[in-house]
């Protein structure tokens, strides 16, 4: 019986690994497709590394609760910054809302794309503020380093 259990375990692990890999690839492909889509958010890092964020496209009217909403982000980097660009929810951050943003450092190139993933868990409308900051960079004085997103999810 032991070899049967071992075989079952091996098959389970293989299937699990395939599923994970498949999910990962699927996610990656979805991400790549999203990156190539028109950006919804534009981040400009000026030569003094100040960050300003603006919305440049229409947000989806609604999404499924618990499923990440993929928002393509265009980064215009005038400051050659190669620090990681971090995103965080300002105020109102709760277990009902999570934000994911790639943590790898910027390339320093003048333009690059990233994906902001926002997951809402509570049905209905949520107004969230997401702030962006180059790690250890200077915050913006006029509040331009943040963007307000009104998002809705349904179960």
């Amino acid at each position: 019986m032991r070899w049967v259990s071992a075989l079952a375990l091996a098959i389970f692990k293989l299937a699990h690994a395939y599923a994970e890999d498949h999910d990962e690839r699927h996610e990656l492909q979805a991400g790549q497709r999203s990156e190539s889509r028109a950006a919804l958010i534009r981040i400009v890092i000026n030569p003094e590394t100040r960050i300003s964020v603006s919305r440049v496209g229409q947000l989806p009217s609604t999404t499924s609760c618990g499923k990440p909403l993929i928002l393509p982000v265009e980064i215009v980097n005038q400051g050659f910054v190669t620090a990681p660009l971090e995103a965080s929810v300002v105020d109102g951050a709760s277990e009902d809302i999570s934000v994911e943003f790639p943590t790898q450092p910027l390339t320093g190139r003048d333009e690059e794309r990233r994906i902001l993933r926002v997951t809402l868990r509570k049905p209905g409308a949520s107004d969230i503020t997401v702030a962006f900051r180059a790690r250890r960079g200077f915050p913006d004085l006029g509040g331009r380093d943040r963007i307000h997103l009104l998002l809705r999810c349904s179960p």
């Binding site: 030569p47 910054v81 450092p105 180059a134 250890r136 200077f138």
Partner: peptide, 22 residues
């Protein structure tokens, strides 16, 4: 200091900065 900040605030410290800014 921009891009030269490291985790340590000791003086002197020997961490190599990321040099990722200006």
């Amino acid at each position: 200091s921009s891009g030269l900040e490291v985790d340590s605030t000791e003086l002197p410290n020997y961490e190599i900065p990321a040099f990722d800014s200006i």
